[in-house]
Design a protein around this nucleic acid. Structure first.
Ligand SMILES: [Mg+2]
Length: 773
DNA sequence: ACGACTGTTTAGTGAG
DNA sequence: CTCACTAAACAGTCGT
């Protein structure tokens, strides 16, 4: 059964379970080892042993970072008191070991306390070069070191590089027109390295990866490094943090990082390779620490999430990944962490939240001993996007009181929200939904200030949507519709559908396809057009045009994206004026689009529903019915449209003109007007916590009953909220941003009436019910 | 043909 | 149970 006709059967993979243990510590390799065992790999020794010798023998406190722009160069930050000699020796050794691949140049900087001063830190810049062997690698060939400079300002030892990166990079992008190929990537944004004030530290692992062996797995070492560093403590705190940041995994999900990468370019599209590069450049962790498998994860995420759409250049040679316009919140790293003040550390750091929580093996090592961690410090690193909150919320300050009006909303809204965003299933269940961000924990801590704006989140929606969306391919039209249908998409899918049907229970997942299937493709235009044009002038790539080649043949299914081109709208100018906070634009768009789309007759089955419905008792189900259809269609937009669509409300959206910053929220609020309330409503109580808190703010205004509801549940927090709240709010906001979803979320919220009707009631129940659960 | 790269899709895991 | 992550099988392309 399950085999779908066309799908390759994948053998089952072993479950390695057993191995379990082994891996544990060591890590990494294990996996493979489990099976095969390659011992060799083990990086020998792994950790402890040898490593020391060779590599890392560096005294604690040392951090190594790859130079952002120079290929084989690493910046080594050393504590003031460190023994330089030994370090140099160690580096030398390392250099040799690495061979051509590894870093051959090292720039030393003392981080220890001071460094800040100006530009240069004394010491060092010594370039030691060691180029082991051929330097072929030199990658570009050109290494520019010159520019490097450090900017001290930051606190402690942080260093920033300013290399020319930006400029260089920037230019490149454009070029590609002809070249197409990669390049571009890097971005310009400020972000670049920024958060890194810290950059990566890595240990030395550099080259490695490639080597022959298992390409995929190799463990990065680093960990240990951390350990070592730990000791340092003291003065170098900064340093340490720096390091951490480097070595630690960024608090963003792959989905978020991909968005950051793609949105960093003007065209908002990037090749896979560029995405890899961007991520490595901005999040050193992936460059040095992460196992090679991270690339697999990136690819996986690109394929999995509907928001990422692949476009092929006109000539078909190059394929770019883009973000579906309706879904693109335009998140950028900048947004995420903004420098607080210039002076200080740019890197914000926030709490520590990592996303991943579990690291697979390695991770952490904690095992070791424990320790690891830093004691208290929690360093803050970038801001995480979202902590797991649920909430759709929004919050933030929205001034508007009006919404209040909604009271009625009480129920409705809620329902709406839920319905919309979530998939029904959950809905009834808990409400929870929220997407999670990558996991971060929010430690209570504090805070980070997040600059961001708030946004709301909702996560789930997004994703949910996406996933569901996925089917939509056709839906695509949606957005564009007005102008032209570009969408079209073809897809073939044929075969499988049956299966899907069969397995309804399969639940959501499967569904999607079907849906699409259903759609009659209206337009279908096929677009051949594509190619044709050539770009007039330079092209800029324009050529891109995206062709959607037929894909039928090619890979499995896939849909192409539409040209999307950006024509649509939106998008905020990235740079534009205010902060991009993002978001808004989308909404508008979406909404607009919505209207048109509303039609969508079909109804595809919603997958989710099926599964879930049954379970739930009545209420949930109901809602389901309604929503699904719409939602299903287009995810992104759908949400909005769906919900809203009926009615269409977009009007509000446009209207807003927010004052800048706050924007998003406001917008959101505005848009929905009512919605907001909903948001507030208690959805999922427990989870919300944070969310709640955030919500809280608004709450005051509202004071609606709904709230109360929540409060009950969450009430707990309230008290506390005092201070925290603020933060939490922030965080929440921030979070939202991160999520990809956000955008959607917003949309979702809007909802429209229709659901209300049905759902409304239902929902209410659900709300009530929650407790039941 | 081989292999690297890119994409798509399953599946298992762990955290919440 | 859901979600994000991770690993891996497999499929197309393309370069050699
Ligand atoms: Mg995709």
């Amino acid at each position: 059964m399950r085999t779908s006709p066309r799908r390759p059967l994948i053998l089952k993979r072993r479950k390695l379970t057993l191995s379990q243990s082994d891996a544990s510590s060591a890590s990494a390799g294990d996996e493979s080892s489990g099976q095969q065992c390659s011992q060799e790999d083990q990086p020998s020794s792994q950790p402890r042993d040898k490593a020391d010798g060779g590599l890392q023998k560096f005294p604690a406190g040392i951090k190594m970072i790859d130079h952002p722009t120079m290929p084989n160069t690493q910046v080594v930050a050393i504590p003031a008191n460190a023994d330089i000699q030994s370090i140099i020796e160690a580096l030398t050794v390392k250099g040799k070991e690495c061979g051509s691949n590894g870093p051959n140049k090292f720039i030393l900087i003392s981080s220890g306390g001071r460094s800040r001063s100006s530009g240069l830190i004394p010491s060092q810049h010594l370039p030691l070069e060691k180029k082991p062997s051929a330097a072929t690698k030199a990658a570009n060939g050109q290494e520019r070191e010159k520019t490097v400079k450090k900017i001290p300002g930051l606190a402690g030892g942080t260093v920033l590089w300013h290399s020319g990166i930006d400029s260089v990079i920037g230019n490149e992008q454009e070029n590609n027109s002809s070249g197409e190929t990669t390049n571009s990537v890097l971005d310009d944004s400020l972000t670049n390295i920024q958060w890194l004030g810290k950059m990566r530290s890595d240990g030395l692992s550099p080259s490695s990866v490639k080597q022959g062996v298992a390409k995929e797995n190799r463990v990065p070492l680093q960990e240990r490094i951390k350990v070592s560093r730990r000791q340092q403590t003291g003065p170098t705190a900064a340093t340490s943090s720096w390091q951490d940041s480097v070595s630690e995994r960024p608090p963003y999900s792959y989905m978020a990082m991909i968005q950051f990468a793609i949105n960093s370019t003007e065209k908002k599209r990037m090749t896979l390779k560029d995405i890899y590069t961007w991520i490595e450049n901005h999040f050193p962790y992936f460059k040095h620490v992460a196992k090679p498998g991270w690339k697999n994860s990136i690819r996986h995420n690109l394929s999995l999430h509907d928001m990422f759409v692949r476009e092929t250049s006109a000539n078909g040679k190059v394929s770019f990944w883009t973000i579906h316009p309706d879904a693109n919140r335009c998140l950028t790293l900048d947004q995420v962490f903004k420098p607080l003040d210039s002076g200080s550390p740019t890197s914000p750091e926030g709490s520590e939240l990592h996303q991943k929580g579990h690291l697979p093996g390695s991770q952490n090592m904690t095992s070791t001993g424990s320790s690891k961690t830093e004691p208290q410090n929690s360093r803050r690193k970038m801001k995480p996007l979202l902590p797991r909150i649920n909430s759709y919320l929004v919050p933030i300050q929205f001034p508007l009181s009006q919404p209040l009006v909604l009271q009625p909303s009480v129920k409705v809204p809620l329902s709406m929200a839920q319905g919309a965003s979530l998939s029904s299933s959950e809905t009834f269940r808990s409400n929870k939904r929220v997407r999670i961000a990558p996991k971060t924990s929010l430690s209570t801590e504090d805070s980070s200030p997040l600059p961001m704006a708030a946004v709301k989140e909702e996560s789930q929606c997004d994703e949910g949507l996406f996933s569901s969306a996925h089917s939509l391919k056709e839906n695509s039209s949606q957005s564009g519709e007005p102008p032209f249908p570009e969408s079209v998409c073809i897809k073939e899918e044929e075969g499988s559908q049956l299966d899907d049907w069969l397995l309804p229970f399969a639940s959501t997942l499967m569904v999607k396809e079907e849906t699409s299937f259903l759609l009659p493709v209206s337009s279908t235009k096929e677009k051949k057009q594509l190619t044709t044009l050539k770009s007039p002038s330079k092209g800029v790539s324009d050529t891109l045009v995206i062709k959607r080649r037929e894909m039928g043949r090619s890979r499995r299914k896939q849909r192409l994206a539409l040209p999307c081109s950006e024509e649509p709208v939106l998008v905020l100018p990235e740079g534009s004026s205010f902060d991009p906070q993002e978001g808004q634009p989308l909404e508008n768009v979406s909404q607009l689009s919505c209207s048109p789309r509303q039609e969508e007759p079909f109804k595809t089955p919603v997958k989710e529903m099926f599964s879930k419905l049954p379970v739930s008792s009545t209420p949930s189900k109901v809602s389901i019915t309604t929503t699904p259809p719409v939602g299903a269609l287009d995810p992104w937009k759908s949400a909005s449209s769906a919900k809203g669509s009926h009615e269409l409300d977009f009007s509000p959206v446009r209207t807003l003109q927010l004052p800048v910053t706050p924007l998003q929220e406001n917008q959101d609020l505005l848009d929905f007007t009512t919605t907001p309330l909903k948001n507030l409503l208690p959805e999922s109580p427990r989870d919300l916590l944070y969310a709640e808190s955030s919500d809280m703010e608004p709450a005051p205004f509202t004071s609606s009953p709904a709230f109360i509801h929540e409060s009950k549940q969450s009430s707990v927090e309230l008290p506390a909220s005092g201070l925290t709240e603020n933060r939490s709010l922030l965080e929440g906001l921030i979070l939202d941003t991160m999520n990809d979803s956000l955008s959607k979320i917003l949309l979702d919220i809007s909802f429209p009436g229709l659901e209300d009707e049905n759902l409304g009631t239902d929902i209410s129940w659900s709300q009530l019910i929650p407790e039941l659960k």
